[in-house]
Computed example of a mutant assay.
Amino acid sequence: MVYNTHRRVIVAPVNEVGILIDSLASKNDRLWPRSEWPAMRLDRPLNIGAAGGHGPVRYFVTAYEPGRRIEFQFTGPSGFTGHHSFTASSLSENSTLLRHELSLSPSGVAKLTWPLFFRPMHDALIEESLDLAENQFSSSTGAAHQRSLWTKILRAPFSACMTHRQSAR
């Protein structure tokens, strides 16, 4: 069993941070770092039952508390059994804990692909998502996750594709 969590204290009220969660997979997504990663896309607006994913990762919404929490259950890739979620919890009037949790029971080939490929990519993507959230409420844009060398190597084919698509516009 894999339990993976990322947390960030955001200096903003929970209702403002919750708006970021509510924007997921929309045209005005303010939480997902889609300029650097495959966009999160759903087949309908954010709500229970909405299905989609990002890149090869597929899921559907199993729980949604607007402004507070969203949970997705994995449907792919093969061997991914579990869920992931974003939660905003008030710490004080102007302080919120933004948390991403993943619970996964990998099977088959996922026992290899999770630690070698998906985990480093997941960790970088989520840290960059939390940077994006933090920087929206900070007077400086100082939060910037540094990708590991392994993550840079894994992303190289994707990065080349993104550069090609942007230059074609």
Rank of each mutant, 00 (worst) to 15 (best):
M1V: 13
M1E: 08
V2P: 00
V2R: 07
Y3H: 14
H6D: 12
V9H: 05
V9K: 10
I10R: 03
I10K: 05
I10C: 08
V11L: 12
V11A: 14
P13S: 12
N15G: 01
E16K: 15
E16L: 14
G18H: 02
S23W: 01
A25C: 06
D29N: 13
D29P: 09
R30S: 12
W32T: 01
W32N: 06
W32F: 09
W32G: 00
P33F: 02
P33R: 10
P33M: 07
A39T: 11
L42M: 13
L42H: 04
D43H: 12
R44A: 14
N47F: 01
A50K: 05
A51S: 15
E65F: 02
R68W: 02
R69S: 04
I70R: 02
E71T: 13
F72H: 14
F72N: 06
F74Y: 15
G76M: 02
G76T: 01
P77H: 00
S78G: 06
T81K: 07
T81S: 08
G82F: 00
G82L: 01
H83I: 02
H84L: 03
F86P: 02
A88D: 03
S89Q: 11
S90A: 15
L91N: 04
N94M: 02
L97K: 02
L98E: 08
H100P: 00
E101L: 05
E101S: 13
L102M: 15
P106A: 06
P106H: 01
S107L: 08
V109A: 14
A110Y: 06
K111W: 11
K111Q: 15
M121N: 06
A124W: 10
A124V: 11
E127C: 14
S140Y: 07
T141W: 03
H145F: 10
Q146D: 07
L149I: 12
L149Q: 11
W150L: 14
T151L: 08
K152Q: 14
P157E: 04
P157V: 06
F158V: 07
S159K: 09
A160G: 09
R165H: 10
R165F: 12
R169L: 14
R169C: 06
